[in-house]
Design a binder for these strands. Structure first.
Length: 964
RNA sequence: GCCGUCUUAGCUCAGUGGUAGAGCACUCGCUUCACACGCGAUAGGCCACAAGUUCAAAUCUUGUAGACGGCACCA
């Protein structure tokens, strides 16, 4: 058969049906699917349609009372490219969003991109140098910023293209960028308000200075790293009035900025020196010897050089004693004039070498020791940070911190998943928080909305006009610096929803009407999914600003994912080159398989990447494809019809087999468990449940059990052409009175529901197959989406129905499965060819006898047996292979085929296994403490099992005896 | 230094007071009419180590060892 155009998309096929073509058989007889699933075709076909049809936007929901569900994607850097961490987070967020959307929530899955100040600026500087051999200073600020925007427009879409490949259902119509005007306006508004309240201030502090990027960095952008070849230098300073004092330092060049030497007052060695002065070598300066608690007499020499302008601790001491703060370096870590003419212009390391040389010449270098130093490095460029005295803007953290801490202490929010260790880490960090340095010496970013007049007055304002009005002059100069990228990120949950300065709480009628509806509807968001690396940088700050400006937490739950490590358990990094490119994995195994592998690993723990894992989900996708292919091949004229599975219907009661009742029970159990797992973000649990339901229960057992019944049966009856009107089997619902062909309709219906459950994780495959199923339409959609074009992504997500769980069916089925497995085991272990058919003798109680009788055909087929003899007791020749199940004894006469040695070994093995269990049980049950103190039902359970084991062991022993 | 996580089958990982699970790999069989990206049947673990709590501990407590992470300090 060939009709690729029509078969490629199911909705074309639907169209042909409504057109009533002269050959109606075509409308039901779908083209046979390819033998294996090719993800590429589905990936190309569906995403554009989903996006173009508005399925991703909250407006698709027609229910005015629909509850909102919203997630904001952590905005990736505009310079970034997709990595496994993104793929993991996006997969989880998308699974949640699709799940909630299918449940009828009005979902907003909001995406956007971060302007990434330093990274982007460096990228463009590099490009400018390469293409035009110019520096930013050559072309000036405005032209440079223009260049960055050009770069953004040209390359900034890369990351969003990659995100589209993942199949995530984000609402692109609401895509945001941190530097776009309305978000910038929010940034200025927040800055001005915080300044007006005194929560933002400008001050001179020791800051983390990156001499290469030539900007200040916040504490969080600095990484402590061990340096090799660290040295501790012992410098001797002459004391005025005689004697010397030796100080130890790792940065000897900073001695040029020393303004004191400190010792501990309790240190007897230096007691007499306190109050004296030192003639600081190479500088002609006289500096005091002071006493301070800070000095540890045990470390180094017990005397510390104090350089207030180049060390945070020294700065504190300088403040306490009113010491001069002498800055001796430029912003590129070369020495300045204050370091003296001999050193001016030298790089810090050259200055160090020269200084040591000088001290040696003067005989003042006592010694140099090897020393394992851990130094702060620029997280981005790995340059050693220089602590430097500098005037910067800061956010005062006292009140900000308290907002977040109060939310945690009063309400336990946000609720972290997993709670351990993140709740504690988050709280502890807040408790020890220091002020946040927010200015950056860059051109790309939100320029600080502060203006200065010639007199040095500061005017912080939303616009220049406002500043001019405040200042009464337009002769103003705006602060050159921009804000930390994380400042705008901190506002993301409300800036992206259109916050314009109104707070949400308390909502009075007057202000409510002014509120932008997105903010009103979707804030607070429901859950944030992110990595632990930005817990402090981003998560905590969103909480603070959300509480401050909206008066509400930005999200209830925070899912912190584990880290995807390489196959050796190492962190992936660009420098190591051990990263795994998600796009490459998509290419090799398909997006859905990758998503399953990621979601199936998401426990909050780190995990090592395994291609094999994706491969197994690629195989799973193929399994789903082929199961569907099988169902379609045998669908004939049947179609999805929930009525064929409904219990309580007299006609169905007659035709529903054990397998039918069992699979319905399993389906409902699975649906309930999947929902439960997703409620608590147990993604791996949901994935495992779906995998095993589909592969083990549905494919390995259900399809095999009903195969004979459905093959070729679909054509025996023709259903009327009316719309089936079937609702989710699992959600209840109604159906019309049509008589469908039961067996093939049932399997199609089960399949259809299974595809819905799989959809949040495997969107492409499930959509592709769903559209091909006979009888799908927007009638299967959740009520909120009935008007939309048919798609699985708007169907009702199966809730599962506890009353559909059939304990009897599960128990009976388990007996049948056990029976079949034991017979197969005999065949395999006795090495009996499948060509040889044999009779299976079964001894069981009356109830079980009727179960086996009712399923005789299935047992014969799956056990490859010729006939069953079911009785109260076994009556078979000696030359029989034996087995026991919990429900029956089995014997297979194998005259002339049996190898008695093999059979004896088999039986002995079975006996040994059961005896192990019995020994444990006997021990436990003979322990009076256990019998008396354990719950009665537990004891009874073990007693029942003990009886069962005794019987089985006795039976097997008799069998074994008989063979001797 | 402080805080924390992990250590379960060859590998990667679930499990979390009441007889130890999955995927992959391994072994044996199968061209069974949806699928060899498959089907069937096995094998494989005193759940890092030690002590404690409990009728019962892989699961709770404490300690030890190893791996890893966060924070702080480092003159």
């Amino acid at each position: 058969m060939s009709e690729p155009g029509a078969a490629a998309t199911g909705f074309l096929s639907r169209a042909t049906r409504t057109l009533s073509l002269p050959l109606p058989v075509l409308t039901y007889c779908f083209m046979e699917l390819a033998k294996a699933y090719d993800p590429k075709e589905a990936e190309e076909n569906h995403y554009k349609r989903w996006e173009g049809s508005g399925f991703f936007a909250p407006e698709i929901n027609q229910d005015p009372n629909a509850a909102p569900f919203s997630i904001v994607v952590p905005p990736p850097n505009v310079t970034g490219s997709l990595h496994m961490g993104h793929a993991l987070q996006h997969t989880l967020m998308d699974a949640l969003t699709r799940w909630k959307r299918m449940q009828g929530y009005r979902t907003l899955f909001l995406v956007g991109v971060d302007h990434a100040g330093i990274s982007t600026q460096l990228m463009v500087i590099r490009q400018l140098k390469k293409e035009e051999h110019k520096t930013p200073q050559d072309i000036g600020r405005d032209a440079f910023v223009e260049k960055v925007w050009d770069w953004k427009h040209k390359y900034g879409g890369e990351i969003t293209k990659q995100i589209r490949k993942e199949g995530v259902s984000v609402d692109w119509s609401r895509e945001r960028f941190t530097m776009e005007e309305n978000l910038s306006r929010t940034v200025r508004e927040v800055f001005v308000r915080l300044y007006d309240e005194g929560w933002i201030y400008r001050g001179t502090r020791i800051v983390n200075w990156c001499p290469r990027d030539k900007t200040v960095l916040s504490d969080l952008e600095v990484k402590e790293e061990k340096v090799k070849d660290g040295k501790l230098y012992y410098l001797t300073y002459p004391v005025n009035g005689g004697g010397t004092v030796t100080v130890a330092t790792t940065r000897p060049e900073t001695m040029l900025g020393d303004t004191a030497v400190a010792v501990n007052q309790s240190d007897k060695r230096y007691k007499d020196l306190i109050g004296k002065t030192i003639a600081l070598p190479l500088t002609n300066r006289e500096i005091p010897i002071i006493a301070d608690e800070y000095v540890d007499p045990e470390f180094g020499t017990g005397a510390v050089k104090i350089t207030p302008a180049h060390d945070a601790n020294d700065w504190e001491i300088g403040e306490r004693y009113g010491l001069e703060k002498l800055v001796i370096m430029n912003d590129d870590a070369t020495m300045n004039a204050a370091a003296g003419a001999e050193f001016e212009g030298l790089d810090r390391y050259d200055a160090r070498a020269k200084l040591i040389e000088k001290f040696e010449e003067l005989g003042l270098l006592e010694r140099i020791e090897d020393y394992d130093a851990t130094l702060p490095h620029c997280e981005r460029c790995k340059t050693v940070i220089e602590p430097l005295l500098s005037e910067q803007w800061f956010v005062k953290m006292d009140e900000m911190r308290d907002l977040a801490l109060k939310l945690m202490r009063d309400e336990g929010l946000p609720h972290f998943f997993p709670a351990v260790p993140h709740t504690k880490v988050y709280t502890a960090w807040l408790e020890n928080l220091r002020d946040w340095t927010i200015s950056r010496q860059l051109w790309w970013g939100h320029q600080i909305p502060a203006w200065y007049d010639d007199a040095g007055n500061t005017y912080v304002a939303r616009t220049k006009e406002e500043a001019v009005a405040k200042a009464g002059t337009d002769d103003l100069r705006q602060d050159e610096d921009v804000l930390d990228t994380w400042f705008s990120s901190a506002l993301w949950p409300f800036s992206t929803l259109g916050w314009s300065g109104d707070t949400l709480v308390p909502i009075d009628a007057a202000s409510a009407s002014k509120l932008p509806s997105d903010l009103d509807t979707f804030y607070p968001t429901n859950v944030l999914v992110t990595g632990r690396d930005i817990l402090f940088l981003w998560v905590s700050r969103m909480v603070m600003t959300g509480m401050k400006f909206i008066g509400k937490k930005p999200f209830d739950d925070v899912v912190i994912t584990g880290t995807v490590l390489d196959k050796n358990g190492q962190r992936m990094s660009k420098t190591k080159g051990n990263g795994i490119d998600p796009l490459d994995v998509f290419e090799r195994f398909g997006v859905d398989a990758t998503r399953m592998a990621l979601a199936g690993s998401a426990t909050g723990m780190d995990f090592a990447w395994r291609d094999e894992k994706v491969e197994s989900y690629r195989n799973f996708a193929n399994k789903i494809w082929n199961a569907t292919r099988f169902c379609l091949m045998n669908a004939g004229k049947s179609r999805i019809d929930a009525a064929t599975l409904r219990r309580g219907d007299a006609e169905n009661e007659e035709t529903l087999s054990l397998a039918d009742r069992w699979i319905v029970s399993r389906l409902n159990k699975t649906a309930m468990a999947v929902n439960r797992a997703l409620e608590t973000y147990q993604f791996h649990e949901a994935v495992q449940l779906l995998y095993h339901f589909f592969w083990d229960d549905f494919c390995d057992w259900y399809i095999e059990l009903v195969k004979d019944e459905i093959v070729g049966s679909g054509d025996t009856l023709v259903p009327t052409d009316a719309a089936s009107g079937s609702e989710s089997l699992l959600g209840g619902g109604t159906t019309d009175g049509d008589k469908s062909v039961p067996a093939p309709s049932r399997i199609l219906t089960i399949l259809e529901i299974a595809l819905r459950m799989l959809h949040p994780f495997m969107p492409y495959l499930t959509e592709d197959l769903w559209l091909k199923l006979p009888g799908v339409s927007n009638e299967l959609h959740h009520a909120a989406y009935r008007g939309a074009e048919a798609t699985i992504m708007l169907t009702d997500f199966p809730k599962g129905d506890a009353s559909a769980i059939d304990g009897a069916a599960e128990a009976e089925m388990s007996a049948v499965i056990d029976m079949i497995t034991k017979v197969r085991n005999i065949r395999a272990e006795m090495n009996i060819s499948t060509a040889i058919k044999f009779t299976v003798h079964i001894a069981a109680d009356a109830a079980m006898q009727s179960v086996f009788k009712a399923n005789e055909a299935q047992i014969l087929k799956l056990a490859k047996a010729e006939s069953l003899v079911i009785a109260d007791a076994l009556d078979v020749p000696k030359a029989s292979a034996r087995a026991v199940t919990n429900d029956a004894s089995i014997a297979v006469p194998l005259i002339g085929l049996i190898d008695f040695d093999v059979e004896r070994t088999r039986l002995a093995g079975q006996i040994a296994k059961l005896t192990d269990e019995k020994t444990r049980l006997d021990g436990q049950l003979s322990n009076t403490n256990f019998v008396e103190r354990a719950p009665a039902d537990k004891v009874q359970e073990l007693r029942d099992r003990q009886t069962e084991l005794n019987d089985q062991i006795a039976t097997l022993n008799n069998n074994l005896e008989a063979l001797k």
